[in-house]
């Protein structure tokens, strides 16, 4: 049986000056598992992902992730937790076009105050780039890459710090079903290799059979 990585208890969150609130009485996500967050638009999928990542702080309740209770951490500590333990894959990849592929890949190390860029980390990043098939593009700019290469760069950037959690926010939202499947398989392959827990927000039901667990956020105890 897999060890639990994320445990949520009696979570209550609401945005300031908004009627929206998210309640999660209890939720457990196992280590190295693949979880899909589904639900109607506005049900709180992204909010839940942001709470797990430590971007948002709950009003009540506890979120235990990577052995830490995020509720008790300061903003700076949550930010460092995010930089070290969470990888993000965005719908539009959000690569920085004015940085070379190499620098985009090393960006998470630059952001983290604790990690920084060392030779070992560079070597690790380049070996990841090699395994994902973009090692010959390191000196190019993202705009010079094909769509597929950009996707792989975004995946590599999310995994370069060996995060325990990878949050993918609808990375296949704009793609056709065949390409979506290819991208998902690449994400799953790479996250499995790095033994990360994959939490993906998606509307695409055809992809759900790729996940061990599917959580309908709308079914969690939510009120408007």
């Amino acid at each position: 049986m897999k060890e639990s990585l994320i445990q949520i208890k009696n979570l209550n969150f609401c945005y300031p000056k908004s009627n929206f609130s998210l309640r999660v009485p209890e939720l457990t996500i196992n280590n190295e598992s693949r979880v899909a967050l589904i639900g109607k638009s506005g049900c709180g999928k992204t909010t839940l992902a942001h709470l797990i990542a430590g971007i948002l702080k709950p009003n009540e309740g506890d979120i235990l992730a990577s052995g830490k209770n995020l509720t008790n951490l300061t903003e700076g500590e949550r930010r460092e937790h995010r930089a070290m333990n969470v990888g993000f894959i965005f719908q539009e990849f959000e690569l920085l076009n004015y940085l070379k592929v190499r620098d985009n890949l090393l960006l998470p190390f630059m952001i983290s105050r604790k990690m920084g860029i060392t030779k070992e980390r560079k070597d690790h990043a380049y070996s990841l780039a090699k395994s994902i098939g973009i090692s010959d593009k390191l000196n190019q700019y993202p705009e010079q890459l094909s769509g597929g290469e950009r996707q792989r760069l975004a995946i590599a950037r999310a995994l370069v710090t060996d995060p325990s959690i990878v949050i993918a926010d609808e990375p296949t939202g704009n793609l056709d079903s065949e390409t979506s499947m290819n991208v998902m398989q690449e994400i799953i392959k790479q996250s499995t290799e790095t033994r990360a827990t994959l939490i993906m927000i998606t509307h695409d039901e055809s992809l759900l059979n790729l996940f061990e667990n599917t959580i309908n956020v709308g079914d969690l105890s939510k009120t408007h």
Binding site: G76, R79, R82, V86, E94, P108, S112
Partner: peptide
């Protein structure tokens, strides 16, 4: 705006 949001989500501090 989007670039700044991305950096923030990835753990970049507001100060940075």
């Amino acid at each position: 705006k989007r670039e700044l949001k991305t950096l923030f989500l990835m753990g970049c501090s507001r100060g940075t």
